[in-house]
């Protein structure tokens, strides 16, 4: 099994404020400058912010992949909603003006894998291109699948992460009172073989993901503790070594805090803990991971994502 390193990271976090939607929005000036030389006519916003994040992550590592070089590099694009807004807008146009009035140039935006493919086309990644829709777990599951693809030697490098938008349709679909936020980000994951220069920022040391059926939901902290134990074990470490526990859950803030406290006690931890309050849609995982990379605290982090019917855990060692 290969060790899996994080060698570059960039996450665009919305700095605009939309009071009506109660939401931190990604502003055009945060992604447009990152798309220079890319033909973006007819490209929808979700593809643009995803591509901007992917390009800047590669750039930070100093990697440019040429068009004709064969490679097996993969893309793992986690997203709760992907291009749902583009699909809906395309359909509304057809309903308002008739099916013949649509612009064929916009149709490619209406497939859910479009943002991931734009990243593959413009970053020249020629391996597997996965779009991972796991609701609020989307980006964490994308990181977990990417970790396993490298660990098992299926590919040698992946861009894993994702993006989500918070347009009125998405906010209506979320139907909660939480403050919302838009984020788009990727981690560059590599095996020891491909790291020729530079020092890795972190190592991914374990991952678990599962569905939660009725019974498990009533004992959620036990189930999550079990998952964490399994995940750390696969990396050959102990749950006791976890120094920072971060939870991103679908629950209201106070219930999220309670679940985090239960989990902390369950695992007999001593370090710090944090419950993410903002609703980042599917981007919660990449926001959590971004925090680790931004931190100087060289420690073992445990990221937990929970939705009402599924949960995922990722273990990251900041180097």
């Amino acid at each position: 099994m290969n060790k899996v390193y994080i060698t570059s990271a960039n996450t665009i976090i919305g700095t605009g404020w939309d009071a009506e939607q109660n939401c931190h929005k990604i502003l055009p000036q945060q992604y447009e400058p990152l798309l220079q030389s890319v033909p973006t006519r007819n490209m929808d916003r979700i593809s643009k912010i995803a591509l901007a994040a992917a390009r800047s992550t590669l750039e930070a590592r100093g990697i440019t992949v040429s068009k004709d070089t064969p490679n097996n590099y993969g893309i793992l694009f986690g997203t709760q909603f992907s291009a749902l807004d583009s699909i809906h807008n395309f359909d509304m146009e057809a309903l308002k003006k008739g099916a013949l009035a649509v612009n064929p140039g916009l149709f490619p935006n209406t497939v859910l894998n479009a943002p991931a493919c734009q990243a593959s086309i413009h970053c020249r990644f020629a391996g597997p291109v996965y779009t991972v829709c796991s609701g609020p777990l989307s980006t964490l599951d994308a990181l977990g699948i990417g970790y396993n693809l490298i660990r098992s030697g299926v590919t040698s490098m992946v861009l894993a992460g994702g993006a989500d938008e918070a347009e009125p349709l998405h906010c209506a679909m979320q139907n909660n009172k939480k403050e919302k936020g838009e984020a788009a980000g990727f981690l560059l994951l590599e095996s020891a073989d491909t790291i020729h220069c530079g020092t890795p920022l972190a190592e991914i040391a374990g991952y678990a993901s599962c569905a939660l059926h009725q019974k498990q939901r009533t004992t959620l902290s036990f189930t999550l503790a079990d998952m964490i134990t399994t995940a750390v074990k696969s990396g050959g470490i102990s749950a006791r070594d976890i120094a920072c526990l971060s939870l991103y859950a679908w629950l209201p803030a106070n219930e999220s805090e309670r679940l985090l406290a239960d989990l902390y006690t369950e695992l007999k931890l001593n370090g710090t803990r944090e419950a993410i309050k903002t609703d980042w849609m599917g981007s919660g995982g990449i926001v959590q991971a971004n925090k680790i990379i931004g931190s100087k605290h060289k420690a073992l982090w445990c990221l937990v994502n929970a939705d009402e019917d599924k949960a995922a855990v990722l273990i990251i060692k900041r180097l």
């Binding site: 709760q80 909603f81 992907s82 749902l84 497939v111 859910l112 894998n113 996965y130 779009t131 991972v132 829709c133 796991s134 609701g135 989307s138 599951d141 699948i145 679909m173 993901s209 599962c210 569905a211 939660l212 059926h213 009725q214 498990q216 019917d309 599924k310």
Partner: peptide
Amino acid sequence: RTDHIASAVSSALQLSGPTYMVP
């Protein structure tokens, strides 16, 4: 929500493994 397609299978069959929707 796209992920609810795979979740529907997990919940209808009371499953506990990973549940992925990969368009």
